[in-house]
Design a protein around this nucleic acid. Sequence first.
DNA 1: ATACAGTGATCAGACTTTCTTACCGGCCAT
DNA 2: ATGGCCGGTAAGAAAGTCTGATCACTGTAT
Lengths: 293, 293
Amino acid sequence: MLPELKIQPLRCVLAIVDAGGFHAAARQLHRTQPAVSMAVRELEQRLGEPLFEKGGKSVLTPFGAYCLPRFRELITQHDRLSRELVAQVQQQVGHVDMAAVPSVASRVMPRLLNDFIQRHPALRVSLQDGNADFVRQLVAGGEVELGLTSLWQKDDDLDFTPLMRDAVGVVCRDDHPLAGQEALGWEALQGQVLIRNGTSRLLEGSDAEPLLAESAFDISNMISLTAMLVSGIGITTLPRLAFPEEYERLRFIPLVDPRVERELGLLRPGRRSLSPAAQAMEAFIIEAFGETG
Amino acid sequence: MLPELKIQPLRCVLAIVDAGGFHAAARQLHRTQPAVSMAVRELEQRLGEPLFEKGGKSVLTPFGAYCLPRFRELITQHDRLSRELVAQVQQQVGHVDMAAVPSVASRVMPRLLNDFIQRHPALRVSLQDGNADFVRQLVAGGEVELGLTSLWQKDDDLDFTPLMRDAVGVVCRDDHPLAGQEALGWEALQGQVLIRNGTSRLLEGSDAEPLLAESAFDISNMISLTAMLVSGIGITTLPRLAFPEEYERLRFIPLVDPRVERELGLLRPGRRSLSPAAQAMEAFIIEAFGETG
DNA sequence: ATACAGTGATCAGACTTTCTTACCGGCCAT
DNA sequence: ATGGCCGGTAAGAAAGTCTGATCACTGTAT
């Protein structure tokens, strides 16, 4: 029904007009003159109306003059889109939505993102944080493209790339009897007021599991947890990265018997692929941790 | 440098998404499934990034999802332009600029234009009037596409199609001695107060030329001329079409010895071609006068 | 006046792109 | 297992596009 306007012939018309002739246009388009001539003729036939006057010189018909600005507009839009897509693919511009668990978001991401935007100044990043399960949901649901988290359960639809191990330790106030220790075994904690938190299930399956049964509270919110620790009500276990260093009165003592670690890594959709910008981010993160860890 | 996005492959992507598969899209596009498949692959290679996930089902990649609305937009604009140009060519819409000498503009054009817009309801017409020379200039300069006028001088760059002949007669007030005549010869005018006007040079070269030497005034403005005639100051000669019938006191008496006629016709650029809308107008006018005269 | 340098148009052949037909391998439900 | 559906692949036909050589025309300079 409607004729398809290809971009090349339109470009020919444009070139003929502003180069002032078929030969000049051909030179400008790196084509031969017959190619230009035939492209125009083909276009004219498709439209059913000549664009250039027949007699000698390259003068537009009234219909051609009518078409010219419209051709120019379509070409402009085509080129804009083409450029935009290429830029996306080449990771020169774009947007990455990602998520991370709070400890990573606050302790790892600032440097990481800073370095990232140094290398990719035109890429934009959105980062949200949440607990490991929330991050997993976001990635699985496609709401973010990448997650930085620890993996609790295997999921066939998700790819997990381990990046770093994060050892669990005991956190207490500086005046606590255990505060001076260099390292601790789990037996030393028996009888203490232990506060459970969101990371406590790391101990499940380890030798320290019996401690969980003793815990008096279960506080998931980090602010509340630190408040309780600072007030000296009890102690807790946390991975080192999750230990809030900015609280002067809190101490972190590595747990060495048993050693318990969580594995932090990059979570991405397994079946779906990533946007070019997210690919850049993925490569950057893996490279960054490949160097340091 | 930048890849050329052809419309067809983009349409394929669109069809695949909203038909929900390659086969369905192929049916919708009246192509075979491999054609669709290959078109997409070609496009992906050109962009350097897959649009659809590789695993089985037709699911867009994030990049594909990013592209989709942009493809849709480009296609929409392409189709809009294509439709618009076809409508122009088929004379369904458009605009004609034309000019006519006042007598034609006021006595012929009203009916003509009315009939024209009946047949071409979506075509717009601009009409301006002016004397024959002005009309010729407008057509020659390309400011209007068509002129309705009489041709004074041959011009190689202009085509003139005769449409009607317009006989010159004598115009006088109803109480003038000549007013009762059915027809007149030029000798009957000798000794009368003759007012020249813009059409008087029609008499040049005819037997009645001696009259011009006797003329007392030369009034080019029609309003002034009729005022003088109505006041009974003198008489003049006019082609019948230029005779202002709305003045009850004026009479038109055909000049039969010699018969002097002007030839009114359609003036159009000879070298340049016409816009589709103007072509419709030209054909319409020639057809209309072919019937009646 | 003649020759010439410029224009765009034309044609045959090579090349590229695009389509169709026929077939393959994977997946899912019966 | 098997039939039906999916999309991908291969080979050949068809259509489109480019080049190089050549033509016809025009205006200009000799």
